[in-house]
Design a binder for these strands. Structure first.
Lengths: 112, 112
DNA sequence: CGGGATCCTGCAGGATACTG
DNA sequence: CAGTATCCTGCAGGATCCCG
């Protein structure tokens, strides 16, 4: 498998990009950068996510090997999510973008 | 105006994030990193964009002060788009993410 | 507690035609 | 050439209920 080329319509990288930059994908990566979190904690941490979309987003990222799901077989269920090594790398890039936006917000907002 | 906090539901940074990480927003920023481009050139450069979405995306990014529109008053119209200094900063972060995805694609795709 | 199943809505995004 | 106007579709995303 060779390197991707996002500017080409058919590039599979676009799928990964879609997951990582999806509305909640970004925020999940940011939230998990702080360490392992349970589903409910993750939900509380990220303002505004619905259960359904959080689950979906976690599935996408898990499918890309960026997030790892660890289920403890107990009742009531106890499930944790954490970044894989690959996920940590990706999250760092997302973090850089997020930080820049948050910091540049004052300057950006002047145009509004 | 203070710094943003993306994890909070009400943070205005989420708007900017939405524009920059929108399906075509990312690719416009990447494409314009190479230099000024005309509308049609931009469209050709980015595989799969419709005219309508390219126009919309450019409006969003222009509204955030990341892209500058330069219209030459001639017939036929001649309009160019380029990154503002702020846009160049943002594009660099997006580029870092994009590069990482393109390069990590092989490793990511192993999970498929 | 951690979801899956279901139903619903809005808007991103697309196709096409038209114009200054 | 660089769009706008119009109409249409699909899917992200939301609300709710339910179950092991």
């Amino acid at each position: 498998m060779e390197r991707g080329d996002l500017l080409s319509a058919a590039c599979p990288s676009r799928e990964v990009l879609k997951h990582m930059t999806s509305r909640w994908g970004v925020l999940v990566l940011l939230a998990l950068e702080g360490g392992t979190l349970r589903f409910s904690a993750l939900r509380r941490r990220i303002g505004g996510v619905s259960e359904r979309m959080l689950a979906k987003t976690l599935h996408w990222l898990e499918g890309d090997g960026l997030v790892e799901r660890i289920a403890h077989e107990v009742v009531p269920p106890h499930v944790e999510y954490r970044l894989t090594p690959l996920g940590r790398e990706g999250a760092a890039r997302v973090r850089a973008l997020a930080d820049w936006i948050e910091q540049s917000l004052p300057e950006i907002a002047q145009n509004w």
